[in-house]
Nucleic acid binder design. Sequence first.
DNA 1: ATATTAGTTCGTATATTTATAAACTAATAT
DNA 2: ATATTAGTTTATAAATATACGAACTAATAT
Lengths: 122, 122
Amino acid sequence: MAKKKEVSIKNKTIYELQAKICSALSHPVRLEILDLLFEGEKNSTDLLEVLDIPKANLSQHLAVLKDAGIIQARKEGVFQYVSLSLPKIKDACHLVRGVLLEKMALEEKQNMQLIKELRAQR
Amino acid sequence: MAKKKEVSIKNKTIYELQAKICSALSHPVRLEILDLLFEGEKNSTDLLEVLDIPKANLSQHLAVLKDAGIIQARKEGVFQYVSLSLPKIKDACHLVRGVLLEKMALEEKQNMQLIKELRAQR
DNA sequence: ATATTAGTTCGTATATTTATAAACTAATAT
DNA sequence: ATATTAGTTTATAAATATACGAACTAATAT
Protein backbone atom coordinates (compact mmCIF):
# COMPACT_ATOMS: atom_id res chain seq x y z
CA MET A 1 0.00 0.00 0.00
CA ALA A 2 2.49 2.57 1.19
CA LYS A 3 4.95 1.11 -1.24
CA LYS A 4 2.57 1.47 -4.16
CA LYS A 5 2.13 5.18 -3.56
CA GLU A 6 5.84 5.74 -3.28
CA VAL A 7 6.59 4.11 -6.59
CA SER A 8 3.72 5.90 -8.23
CA ILE A 9 4.99 9.34 -7.16
CA LYS A 10 8.50 8.59 -8.33
CA ASN A 11 7.32 7.23 -11.67
CA LYS A 12 4.85 10.04 -12.33
CA THR A 13 7.60 12.50 -13.17
CA ILE A 14 9.48 9.92 -15.20
CA TYR A 15 6.37 9.30 -17.29
CA GLU A 16 6.03 13.03 -17.78
CA LEU A 17 9.61 13.39 -18.97
CA GLN A 18 9.25 10.37 -21.21
CA ALA A 19 5.99 11.77 -22.61
CA LYS A 20 7.74 15.02 -23.38
CA ILE A 21 10.35 13.26 -25.48
CA CYS A 22 7.59 11.40 -27.32
CA SER A 23 5.74 14.67 -27.92
CA ALA A 24 8.81 16.09 -29.58
CA LEU A 25 8.76 13.07 -31.91
CA SER A 26 5.07 13.46 -32.67
CA HIS A 27 5.20 15.57 -35.78
CA PRO A 28 6.03 14.36 -39.28
CA VAL A 29 8.21 17.36 -40.06
CA ARG A 30 10.27 16.88 -36.91
CA LEU A 31 10.76 13.20 -37.72
CA GLU A 32 11.97 14.18 -41.15
CA ILE A 33 14.35 16.72 -39.60
CA LEU A 34 15.75 14.03 -37.31
CA ASP A 35 16.17 11.65 -40.23
CA LEU A 36 18.26 14.32 -41.92
CA LEU A 37 20.28 14.91 -38.77
CA PHE A 38 21.04 11.20 -38.50
CA GLU A 39 23.27 11.79 -41.52
CA GLY A 40 25.13 14.47 -39.59
CA GLU A 41 25.12 18.16 -38.77
CA LYS A 42 22.99 20.43 -40.97
CA ASN A 43 22.18 24.10 -41.12
CA SER A 44 18.71 25.55 -41.52
CA THR A 45 19.25 26.32 -45.17
CA ASP A 46 20.13 22.67 -45.83
CA LEU A 47 16.95 21.62 -44.04
CA LEU A 48 14.74 24.15 -45.79
CA GLU A 49 15.90 22.84 -49.14
CA VAL A 50 14.43 19.44 -48.34
CA LEU A 51 11.48 20.34 -46.12
CA ASP A 52 8.83 22.27 -47.92
CA ILE A 53 7.94 24.71 -45.14
CA PRO A 54 8.44 28.42 -44.35
CA LYS A 55 11.49 29.28 -42.29
CA ALA A 56 9.49 30.56 -39.34
CA ASN A 57 7.89 27.15 -39.11
CA LEU A 58 11.24 25.39 -39.23
CA SER A 59 12.46 27.65 -36.48
CA GLN A 60 9.51 26.61 -34.30
CA HIS A 61 10.05 22.92 -34.94
CA LEU A 62 13.75 23.21 -34.15
CA ALA A 63 12.81 25.05 -30.96
CA VAL A 64 10.60 22.12 -29.93
CA LEU A 65 13.45 19.68 -30.52
CA LYS A 66 15.92 21.91 -28.66
CA ASP A 67 13.52 22.35 -25.79
CA ALA A 68 13.21 18.58 -25.50
CA GLY A 69 17.02 18.42 -25.39
CA ILE A 70 17.16 16.25 -28.50
CA ILE A 71 19.20 18.59 -30.68
CA GLN A 72 21.77 21.30 -30.12
CA ALA A 73 22.76 24.31 -32.19
CA ARG A 74 26.17 25.73 -32.95
CA LYS A 75 26.41 29.20 -34.43
CA GLU A 76 28.97 29.92 -37.09
CA GLY A 77 28.75 33.37 -38.64
CA VAL A 78 25.28 33.82 -40.03
CA PHE A 79 24.59 30.12 -40.00
CA GLN A 80 23.28 27.87 -37.34
CA TYR A 81 24.36 24.27 -37.45
CA VAL A 82 22.13 21.80 -35.68
CA SER A 83 22.96 18.26 -34.65
CA LEU A 84 21.74 15.52 -32.34
CA SER A 85 22.61 15.88 -28.71
CA LEU A 86 21.15 12.53 -27.69
CA PRO A 87 22.50 9.93 -30.13
CA LYS A 88 20.21 7.23 -28.77
CA ILE A 89 17.29 9.05 -30.32
CA LYS A 90 18.33 7.43 -33.57
CA ASP A 91 17.78 3.94 -32.20
CA ALA A 92 14.53 5.03 -30.62
CA CYS A 93 13.21 6.43 -33.90
CA HIS A 94 14.24 3.31 -35.76
CA LEU A 95 12.49 1.14 -33.23
CA VAL A 96 9.31 3.17 -33.57
CA ARG A 97 9.65 2.61 -37.29
CA GLY A 98 9.89 -1.07 -36.44
CA VAL A 99 6.64 -0.85 -34.50
CA LEU A 100 5.07 0.71 -37.56
CA LEU A 101 6.27 -2.16 -39.72
CA GLU A 102 4.92 -4.62 -37.18
CA LYS A 103 1.59 -2.83 -37.36
CA MET A 104 1.49 -2.87 -41.14
CA ALA A 105 2.35 -6.58 -41.21
CA LEU A 106 -0.45 -7.25 -38.75
CA GLU A 107 -2.94 -5.27 -40.81
CA GLU A 108 -1.86 -7.12 -43.92
CA LYS A 109 -2.41 -10.43 -42.18
CA GLN A 110 -5.84 -9.36 -40.98
CA ASN A 111 -6.82 -8.19 -44.45
CA MET A 112 -5.77 -11.51 -45.91
CA GLN A 113 -7.88 -13.33 -43.35
CA LEU A 114 -10.84 -11.10 -44.20
CA ILE A 115 -10.48 -11.81 -47.90
CA LYS A 116 -10.35 -15.51 -47.18
CA GLU A 117 -13.55 -15.33 -45.16
CA LEU A 118 -15.33 -13.29 -47.82
CA ARG A 119 -14.31 -15.85 -50.44
CA ALA A 120 -15.65 -18.66 -48.25
CA GLN A 121 -19.03 -16.96 -47.90
CA ARG A 122 -19.85 -17.01 -51.59
CA MET B 1 15.91 16.13 -58.56
CA ALA B 2 13.02 13.97 -59.70
CA LYS B 3 14.26 11.29 -57.36
CA LYS B 4 14.24 13.60 -54.38
CA LYS B 5 10.58 14.47 -54.86
CA GLU B 6 9.63 10.81 -55.23
CA VAL B 7 11.28 9.79 -51.99
CA SER B 8 9.84 12.77 -50.22
CA ILE B 9 6.26 11.87 -51.20
CA LYS B 10 6.70 8.24 -50.19
CA ASN B 11 8.25 9.15 -46.86
CA LYS B 12 5.72 11.86 -46.03
CA THR B 13 3.05 9.35 -45.18
CA ILE B 14 5.51 7.15 -43.30
CA TYR B 15 6.50 10.09 -41.16
CA GLU B 16 2.82 10.78 -40.52
CA LEU B 17 2.16 7.21 -39.42
CA GLN B 18 5.25 7.21 -37.27
CA ALA B 19 4.22 10.53 -35.74
CA LYS B 20 0.85 9.06 -34.92
CA ILE B 21 2.42 6.24 -32.95
CA CYS B 22 4.58 8.74 -31.10
CA SER B 23 1.51 10.86 -30.34
CA ALA B 24 -0.14 7.88 -28.71
CA LEU B 25 2.94 7.58 -26.50
CA SER B 26 2.92 11.28 -25.62
CA HIS B 27 0.90 11.24 -22.44
CA PRO B 28 2.14 10.18 -19.01
CA VAL B 29 -1.04 8.27 -18.21
CA ARG B 30 -0.84 6.27 -21.42
CA LEU B 31 2.79 5.44 -20.74
CA GLU B 32 1.80 4.19 -17.31
CA ILE B 33 -0.99 2.11 -18.86
CA LEU B 34 1.49 0.56 -21.27
CA ASP B 35 3.90 -0.19 -18.45
CA LEU B 36 1.10 -2.07 -16.73
CA LEU B 37 0.23 -3.93 -19.92
CA PHE B 38 3.86 -5.01 -20.33
CA GLU B 39 3.15 -7.28 -17.37
CA GLY B 40 0.24 -8.81 -19.27
CA GLU B 41 -3.45 -8.45 -19.98
CA LYS B 42 -5.44 -6.18 -17.65
CA ASN B 43 -9.03 -5.04 -17.36
CA SER B 44 -10.13 -1.46 -16.81
CA THR B 45 -10.84 -2.06 -13.15
CA ASP B 46 -7.28 -3.28 -12.64
CA LEU B 47 -6.00 -0.18 -14.35
CA LEU B 48 -8.26 2.22 -12.47
CA GLU B 49 -6.96 0.83 -9.18
CA VAL B 50 -3.47 2.00 -10.07
CA LEU B 51 -4.14 5.08 -12.15
CA ASP B 52 -5.75 7.86 -10.19
CA ILE B 53 -8.18 9.06 -12.88
CA PRO B 54 -11.94 8.92 -13.56
CA LYS B 55 -13.16 6.04 -15.69
CA ALA B 56 -14.31 8.29 -18.53
CA ASN B 57 -10.78 9.55 -18.81
CA LEU B 58 -9.33 6.04 -18.86
CA SER B 59 -11.77 5.11 -21.57
CA GLN B 60 -10.52 8.02 -23.68
CA HIS B 61 -6.89 7.11 -23.18
CA LEU B 62 -7.56 3.49 -24.08
CA ALA B 63 -9.38 4.70 -27.18
CA VAL B 64 -6.29 6.65 -28.23
CA LEU B 65 -4.11 3.56 -27.81
CA LYS B 66 -6.61 1.37 -29.67
CA ASP B 67 -6.90 3.89 -32.46
CA ALA B 68 -3.14 3.85 -32.85
CA GLY B 69 -3.33 0.07 -33.08
CA ILE B 70 -1.09 -0.37 -30.05
CA ILE B 71 -3.54 -2.26 -27.86
CA GLN B 72 -6.50 -4.53 -28.43
CA ALA B 73 -9.52 -5.34 -26.29
CA ARG B 74 -11.24 -8.64 -25.61
CA LYS B 75 -14.67 -8.59 -24.04
CA GLU B 76 -15.58 -11.17 -21.42
CA GLY B 77 -18.95 -10.67 -19.79
CA VAL B 78 -19.02 -7.21 -18.29
CA PHE B 79 -15.29 -6.86 -18.39
CA GLN B 80 -12.97 -5.68 -21.06
CA TYR B 81 -9.49 -7.09 -21.07
CA VAL B 82 -6.86 -5.04 -22.86
CA SER B 83 -3.46 -6.15 -24.01
CA LEU B 84 -0.67 -5.11 -26.35
CA SER B 85 -1.24 -5.84 -30.01
CA LEU B 86 2.22 -4.65 -31.08
CA PRO B 87 4.75 -6.31 -28.78
CA LYS B 88 7.62 -4.23 -30.16
CA ILE B 89 6.11 -1.22 -28.45
CA LYS B 90 7.72 -2.50 -25.29
CA ASP B 91 11.20 -2.23 -26.75
CA ALA B 92 10.36 1.15 -28.20
CA CYS B 93 9.20 2.49 -24.84
CA HIS B 94 12.25 1.13 -23.12
CA LEU B 95 14.49 2.74 -25.67
CA VAL B 96 12.79 6.09 -25.17
CA ARG B 97 13.42 5.59 -21.48
CA GLY B 98 17.05 5.03 -22.45
CA VAL B 99 17.06 8.36 -24.30
CA LEU B 100 15.74 9.98 -21.15
CA LEU B 101 18.55 8.44 -19.11
CA GLU B 102 21.04 9.65 -21.69
CA LYS B 103 19.57 13.12 -21.36
CA MET B 104 19.74 13.10 -17.58
CA ALA B 105 23.34 11.90 -17.66
CA LEU B 106 24.20 14.71 -20.06
CA GLU B 107 22.53 17.30 -17.85
CA GLU B 108 24.36 15.97 -14.86
CA LYS B 109 27.64 16.27 -16.69
CA GLN B 110 26.85 19.83 -17.75
CA ASN B 111 25.89 20.80 -14.22
CA MET B 112 29.15 19.41 -12.92
CA GLN B 113 31.05 21.43 -15.48
CA LEU B 114 29.12 24.56 -14.48
CA ILE B 115 29.92 24.04 -10.81
CA LYS B 116 33.57 23.61 -11.68
CA GLU B 117 33.59 26.87 -13.61
CA LEU B 118 31.81 28.75 -10.85
CA ARG B 119 34.37 27.44 -8.36
CA ALA B 120 37.21 28.58 -10.60
CA GLN B 121 35.78 32.10 -10.81
CA ARG B 122 36.08 32.77 -7.09
C1' DA C 1 -38.73 -6.00 -14.04
C1' DT C 2 -35.27 -3.57 -11.59
C1' DA C 3 -30.89 -2.61 -9.77
C1' DT C 4 -26.02 -2.79 -10.30
C1' DT C 5 -21.76 -2.64 -12.46
C1' DA C 6 -18.43 -1.87 -16.51
C1' DG C 7 -17.48 0.89 -19.86
C1' DT C 8 -18.60 4.49 -23.68
C1' DT C 9 -20.21 8.76 -25.44
C1' DC C 10 -21.47 13.53 -25.07
C1' DG C 11 -21.17 18.32 -23.77
C1' DT C 12 -18.31 21.69 -22.44
C1' DA C 13 -14.43 24.21 -20.82
C1' DT C 14 -9.55 24.75 -21.17
C1' DA C 15 -4.91 24.18 -22.77
C1' DT C 16 -1.62 23.01 -26.21
C1' DT C 17 -0.03 22.75 -30.87
C1' DT C 18 0.41 24.27 -35.31
C1' DA C 19 0.70 27.37 -39.47
C1' DT C 20 1.58 31.68 -41.37
C1' DA C 21 2.55 36.50 -42.11
C1' DA C 22 4.91 40.39 -40.42
C1' DA C 23 8.15 42.56 -37.64
C1' DC C 24 12.36 41.98 -35.68
C1' DT C 25 17.69 40.96 -34.54
C1' DA C 26 22.25 39.95 -35.76
C1' DA C 27 26.00 38.98 -38.85
C1' DT C 28 28.09 39.92 -43.23
C1' DA C 29 28.99 42.21 -47.59
C1' DT C 30 29.17 46.44 -50.45
C1' DA D 1 26.01 53.57 -43.74
C1' DT D 2 23.06 50.52 -46.17
C1' DA D 3 21.53 46.34 -48.03
C1' DT D 4 21.25 41.48 -47.64
C1' DT D 5 20.75 37.18 -45.59
C1' DA D 6 19.84 33.82 -41.63
C1' DG D 7 17.14 33.01 -38.20
C1' DT D 8 13.84 34.34 -34.20
C1' DT D 9 9.86 36.32 -32.19
C1' DT D 10 5.28 37.94 -32.20
C1' DA D 11 0.46 38.05 -33.23
C1' DT D 12 -3.32 35.58 -34.64
C1' DA D 13 -6.24 32.08 -36.26
C1' DA D 14 -7.37 27.32 -36.45
C1' DA D 15 -6.99 22.64 -35.03
C1' DT D 16 -6.20 19.15 -31.67
C1' DA D 17 -5.89 17.24 -27.09
C1' DT D 18 -7.34 16.90 -22.46
C1' DA D 19 -10.31 16.65 -18.25
C1' DC D 20 -14.46 15.55 -16.23
C1' DG D 21 -19.37 15.31 -15.02
C1' DA D 22 -23.59 13.53 -16.77
C1' DA D 23 -26.14 10.74 -19.60
C1' DC D 24 -26.01 6.61 -21.86
C1' DT D 25 -25.59 1.28 -23.27
C1' DA D 26 -24.93 -3.43 -22.25
C1' DA D 27 -24.28 -7.39 -19.34
C1' DT D 28 -25.32 -9.57 -15.04
C1' DA D 29 -27.60 -10.43 -10.67
C1' DT D 30 -31.71 -10.35 -7.66
